[in-house]
């Protein structure tokens, strides 16, 4: 499809971007005294359903749902959102497997607006029949169920599904004709690999564990990363420093939350270029990622306020904004 096919949708997104929260808005939100003050501030900005009795969770849920409805009505080719939706499908599958096999209570951990509904997935797990799922997803589900039944180890189940998720995202990067989707998908895989390496190095996980969890991708030498992680966090930092990721090394050395923030900010850096693009699907995808990032950040602030945490403590966990 020509990049000009999205001209109308991108123009609408540009007009909607005016209502995104800026870094200054987030700073203002942090300095407010209570959770109620924050909710009132957000309500003034048009967040939620307008109901004054709405809880923080309800407001964020309404906001997320509104954002997805907005972007879905903009385009006829919904496949451009696959790179965002497919990881949710896998997440829901993982939750369904754990809920049915390991009998975990997990009704509020499902994503909404996915192709396969939680009840459908749970029924598939109960029947051990995944024929309705795409081939790769069905294979991962079969293996995860089999492994969980044999070992009762939820972490192995997580690894199987998470790796299948990354493989699915990598496949999108390989087949897409959109340079933005390709870059975003590869960044998702790279950041996930780095997360696994750092966490594995800190918890002393084995080489085979990392090999099973990581996904080979362009732009990152997974073999070298695994070898570095085997030798400890310092070696991971050395490797990342050698490939030019000095900011990441700083974040790893600062604190776990600084590292998590770097991971999220890296994705934000990828999408920020779309602010200056007037054509193609890139700005539309960037807008919904920005909306989700904004909701995630607001959730961090509201949780901090509800628990009366210090402003600086909250500030350290706040993500970079799109506008």
């Amino acid at each position: 499809m020509s990049d000009a096919a999205y001209t109308y949708a991108v123009a609408r997104v540009r007009a909607k971007e005016v209502f995104l929260l800026s870094d200054a808005d987030i700073e203002q939100l942090i300095t407010l005294k209570t959770e109620e003050n924050c909710l009132a501030f957000l309500r003034e900005k048009g967040w939620g359903s307008g109901d004054y009795k709405e809880s923080a969770d309800e407001m964020l849920s309404v906001q997320l749902s509104k954002s997805w409805t907005e972007v879905r009505e903009l385009v006829s080719d919904k496949s451009i959102f696959d790179v965002l939706i497919i990881p949710r499908e896998y997440h829901n599958l993982k939750a369904a497997i754990k809920q049915v096999i390991a009998d975990e209570k997990a009704d509020n951990v499902y994503y909404e607006d996915t192709q396969f509904k939680p009840e459908q997935l749970k029924a598939m797990v109960e029947k051990r029949n995944f024929d309705e799922l795409p081939k790769e997803m069905a294979e991962a589900a079969d293996l995860a169920v089999e492994t969980l039944l044999q070992t009762r180890d939820g972490q192995i189940c997580d690894i199987i599904i998470d790796k299948a998720t990354l493989e699915a995202v990598k496949k999108i990067a390989e087949i897409t004709s959109s340079p933005f989707i390709k870059k975003y998908a590869l960044d998702i895989v790279s950041v996930a690999n780095i997360r696994i390496a750092v966490r594995s190095a800190k918890t002393g996980k084995s080489k085979s564990f990392m090999e099973n969890a990581m996904t080979r991708c362009e732009g990152l030498d997974v073999k070298a990363l695994i070898e570095a992680a085997e030798a400890g966090v310092e070696k991971v930092c050395d490797y990342l420093g050698n490939v030019g990721m000095t900011e990441l090394v700083e974040a790893i050395k600062t604190s776990p939350s600084a590292f998590e923030r770097w991971c999220d900010n890296r994705i934000m850096d990828t999408i920020i270029s779309q602010k200056y693009n007037s054509f193609s699907e890139g700005p539309i995808i960037a807008y919904i990622i920005a909306r989700e990032n904004e909701i995630k950040t607001v959730r961090v602030i509201l949780t901090g306020k509800a628990n009366e945490l210090d402003d600086d403590f909250i500030r350290e966990r706040v993500r970079k904004m799109y506008v």
Partner: peptide, 14 residues
């Protein structure tokens, strides 16, 4: 035509 599509998008919102 291109500018018209973009204009329609902006006017839809504002």
């Amino acid at each position: 035509g291109l500018a018209g599509q973009a204009s329609a998008g902006v006017v839809t919102e504002d």
